[in-house]
Design a protein around this nucleic acid. Structure first.
Lengths: 208, 208
DNA sequence: GTCTATAGGCAGATAGAC
DNA sequence: GTCTATCTGCCTATAGAC
């Protein structure tokens, strides 16, 4: 379903629904929007939305799965474009910065807050998302440690958890302030202190 | 209102309402619970809840204000008990660990996720909470830097933001895993790397 | 695939008796 | 202060025509 439309081509209905729902979930939380919100924005009836996604749980699961897929593609793109592990980490933080600049929280960070109210399959998918991110980060960190461009003071896995948590938290706290630079400052501190004993002047990441 | 009851004495109704609402807000988010939830748990009618807190916005604001007051008291207690800035930071992280062990998210971290849907006064109070925490942390960090027990690689304010964000993010991500040790690992990494150039074996914080 | 209409329930909130 | 009863509106979801 949903064969990737050529650029300029109109997206199909299911895709447009997911686009709107994704933004609403990222800004208002999964319990903070309704079918009516999507309906009014797309000028499509609520009943039509239920045709594409019978229940809100179905919609939510489709949301996470697409988000995780897109995120994995972004990570693959980083792998293609960057060789230096530090550049990869900067690009990784840049993904978060781009999301935040769009006034959004990471979808899965937001759903982590909603975790106790989510249908089980959605909760499981949130955890998978974090696991995949952690695994990717750990690989990059280990690569850097082996190449001696990074000097870790803990296991790659623990450093990866710290980076993931730190970036999610930086987004969470920065968003009420509406201040991207607040995120950037924290992200830089996080990567600098975790990846080098004596930080040698870092740029502001690829974001924004 | 609500004169602190002597230990063992039954709390008044408004306090019991706030206790239940606080837990619900911390676990399910502000849009994830209703007056009916509190009503059934306390076996008090919904109408009675509205007598004490006319609107949910009123309830929410009372929730944040009490939480911020309690938090400030906890920080004052740390100041009384600990002299070493590192011990103060460990105790600070211990507060978060205690909240997480109780299966909860920081109230204001949770409300930060809900920020876009909150009544304006609640949103403002969330920001004040973060500001106060950041200011307290910055003072402790500066104290440590002056006493030469901490070696900061950035301004106290930036380090404070990184610690606050890092702990909030660590809670956010650890909660779906239901794993306190995951939080502890990240908190230790955060404080160790931010406060000493060559980490000299740190304990696991004062939390649980 | 999209619609109108509507079911059935729960949300926040109020009236008024006690 | 607490209650029962109720209001209005929105929620998710379905039926059935086109």
């Amino acid at each position: 379903m949903a064969p990737a439309p050529r650029s300029g081509e109109a997206a199909d209905t299911a895709t447009r629904i997911l686009d709107v729902a994704e933004r609403l979930a990222q800004t208002r939380g999964f319990n903070g929007f309704s079918y009516a919100d999507i309906s009014s924005e797309l000028e499509i009836s609520k009943a039509s939305l239920h045709y594409h996604f019978p229940s809100k749980a179905d919609l939510g699961q489709a949301l996470i799965e697409r988000y995780a897929t897109h995120f994995a593609e972004a990570l693959a793109t980083i792998e293609e474009r960057e060789r230096d592990p530090i550049a990869k980490l900067d690009a990784y933080a840049g993904i978060y910065a781009d999301v935040l600049q769009d006034q959004r929280m990471c979808l899965c960070g937001m759903l982590a807050a909603d975790y106790d109210t989510l249908p089980k399959p959605m909760g499981d998918a949130v955890i998978r998302f974090f696991d995949e991110n952690e695994a990717w980060l750990a690989r990059v960190l280990e690569q850097g440690a082996n190449a001696d461009t990074l000097h870790l003071s803990r296991s790659p896995r623990e450093e990866a958890q710290a980076i993931l948590s730190g970036l999610e938290g930086a987004m969470l706290v920065a968003r009420p302030y509406g201040d991207l630079s607040r995120f950037q400052a924290v992200a830089n501190a996080l990567l600098a202190s975790l990846t080098s004993p004596s930080p040698p002047e870092r740029g502001s990441g690829s974001g924004a």
